[in-house]
Amino acid sequence: MSVGLLYALAGAALVAIGLAGLLLLPQLLRKILAFNILGSGAFLILVGLGQRDGGIDPVPQAMVLTGIVVAIAATALALALARQLLDLSGRMRLPEDGPDAGAADD
């Protein structure tokens, strides 16, 4: 097994951890961290699979650099929104009503 493939497999584990965290953790800061773990997993897979035969592939490396900046941007916006929600509601979590719960309220 090459080092690249090992990275990719670790990435798969990170994706699973991030996905579970994003869906299960109620606290917004943890959700945002979970999204970052999921993203890092995807980046590891992208770079790892590209270099599984040992050579260096600059294309996925450049793609991941692009992806990291995009993830920073998304994280910053998410943090600003979470912060705003904290200021407005005093809570750092989304209300727990399921889909369509607000259907009949006014």
Binding site: A8, L9, A12, A13, V15, I17, L19, I45
Partner: peptide, 15 residues
């Protein structure tokens, strides 16, 4: 958790 683990397993198998 099962869904996430299943995804990881599928990704690993595919890789």
């Amino acid at each position: 958790v099962l869904l996430a683990a299943g995804l990881a397993a599928a990704l690993g198998l595919a890789m």
